[in-house]
Simulated assay, not measured.
Amino acid sequence: MSDPDLIDEEDLSPPLAPAEVLEARLDAPGVRLDKALAEAFPTLSRARLQALLAEGAVRRDGLVLTAGSAKAQPGLYVVALPPVAPATPQPEAIPLTVLYEDADLIVIDKPAGMAAHPAPGCETGTLVNALLAHCGDSLSGIGGVARPGIVHRLDKDTSGVMVAAKTDRAHQGLSALFATHDIERTYIALTRGAPSPSRGRIETRIGRSTGDRKKIAVLKAGGREAITDYVVQAIFGEPAKASGAPLAARVACTLHTGRTHQIRVHLSSKGSPILGDATYGSGSPAAAVRAVVAEAGLARQALHAAVLGFVHPVTGETLRFETPPPADMVRLEALLSDL
């Protein structure tokens, strides 16, 4: 279908040496600096370079540069990459909404804004950090040091039901269920417009976009099979155009595969991207929809993993969990209903 320790005194330890230093000579007057650097250092994304600029890690002929929007000037550019963060996540006492727990697994209702596991730029405050504190030594090493217990994930800004393993046998069993798609997974999305027809199956191949490697896209060839069933549960607002499309909709999506960003990409491919999705929400909603999105305080894609059902890999018990969307989506839907 993912934050922080307070330091009460100044850290007087000597600064760490950079893990790697990259150099390139540029002659690209007039081009935005972050764009020119992204072309000169293809292993670094533009967003990563912007962060490095903000940290003062980029120099031109010895001069520290901080503004990615500035125009590039000819010269020798040096990028000092900071040391890699420790690979072992640390326990953090972060409250969890636990829906079910036994000796083998735990099911939680993940809030929006919490990443599933640590990654560059998001090393703390993740579900893994919280689980390490909640479960203690039982979780250590299950499924790997960097992602202990994690068998699937939700995007950082997607809320909803997740399961994590606490033992090796549960991890193996859950991984097998996800691999064969023997999992019930239904998501609720609030979309711009509504997919047509009102009920259907989206079956495509998706993979890394050839135009933007940080995005996933529907592909004509390559990629992996992705299947989503959807049902429009409610429509909001008068048609925005003569086509008869509503302003917005509530859509239930059932996954038959679990590819990265699958629902977000599939709904966007139907011309009904998820409201608040800065990555796949091409185009702009109607003014009335933009206004209620702002009034609702929605600061993420309006996507919630509402249902997760599976057979317990150890006990054989059939388990099913369902949670309502959180407050930001509930408020947005109420405001959309008044359009």
Rank of each mutant, 00 (worst) to 15 (best):
H152E: 11
H152T: 12
R153N: 09
R153G: 11
R153V: 06
L154C: 11
K156Q: 03
K156R: 11
D157A: 06
D157F: 07
T158P: 06
T158Q: 05
T158K: 02
S159Q: 12
S159V: 09
S159T: 12
S159P: 10
S159Y: 08
G160C: 09
G160W: 10
G160T: 10
G160Y: 04
V161M: 08
M162K: 01
M162G: 05
M162F: 15
V163L: 13
V163P: 01
V163M: 13
A164S: 14
A164W: 04
A165T: 08
A165G: 10
A165M: 14
A165P: 04
A165W: 14
K166E: 04
K166C: 05
K166S: 05
K166F: 07
T167P: 12
T167S: 13
T167Y: 09
D168M: 15
D168V: 07
R169A: 12
R169N: 02
R169G: 04
A170S: 04
A170M: 00
A170G: 01
A170T: 00
H171E: 03
H171W: 12
Q172W: 05
Q172F: 03
G173H: 01
G173Q: 00
L174R: 00
L174D: 00
L174F: 12
L174H: 01
L174K: 00
S175Q: 04
S175F: 12
S175D: 07
A176D: 10
L177T: 11
L177R: 10
L177W: 14
L177Y: 14
L177V: 08
F178G: 12
F178W: 15
A179C: 03
A179H: 04
T180I: 10
T180E: 12
H181P: 05
H181Y: 03
H181I: 02
H181K: 00
H181E: 04
H181D: 00
D182Y: 02
I183V: 13
I183R: 01
I183A: 10
E184C: 13
E184Q: 11
E184H: 09
R185E: 06
R185H: 13
R185C: 07
R185S: 08
T186G: 06
T186R: 03
T186E: 14
I188H: 08
I188F: 02
A189N: 07
A189M: 15
A189W: 11
A189D: 13
A189G: 08
A189P: 04
L190I: 11
L190S: 00
L190M: 12
L190P: 01
T191D: 08
T191N: 03
T191E: 11
T191V: 15
T191S: 09
R192I: 15
R192Y: 15
A194C: 13
A194M: 12
A194Y: 07
P195M: 08
P195H: 09
P195Y: 02
P195R: 12
P195F: 02
S196C: 07
S196E: 14
S196Y: 14
S196K: 10
P197D: 13
P197Q: 15
P197N: 13
R199I: 14
R199N: 11
R199Y: 02
R199G: 08
R199F: 03
